[in-house]
């Protein structure tokens, strides 16, 4: 029973993170949300008895994908609907 709940919670978390990543306007938050997706996905792989896949997802999803996305954001813009062409100074706000 508890597995069912765990599965349900994990799947819902993942879906919520995916929806959040899709509709969030701040790209940094969307990137952190993809980190959450990969974390939860890795736990689900683990529960589906695929530790190899879980390990791969963990190793790639935790830091590497995040750093590449973040560097792209650093080099470009932080907000999705930024039309302003020279807004690099305002870019880093926590």
């Amino acid at each position: 029973m508890i597995y069912l709940i765990l599965f349900a919670v994990l799947l819902l978390l993942m879906l919520a993170a995916a929806v959040y990543a899709t509709f969030q306007r701040d790209l940094l938050y969307a990137v952190i949300a993809t980190g959450v997706i990969s974390l939860v996905l890795s736990v689900i792989f683990y529960m589906l008895q695929a530790p190899d896949v879980a390990l791969t997802e963990a190793a790639i999803g935790v830091a590497l994908t995040t750093i590449i996305f973040i560097i792209t954001i650093r080099n470009t813009v932080r907000h999705e609907d930024e039309h302003d062409k020279h807004s690099r100074e305002k870019k880093i706000q926590p």
Partner: peptide, 14 residues
């Protein structure tokens, strides 16, 4: 549907 290129890449990875 998204207009931002990074969003498109995020969508593909999802």
């Amino acid at each position: 549907t998204k207009k931002s290129l990074i969003k498109i890449v995020i969508g593909l990875s999802i």
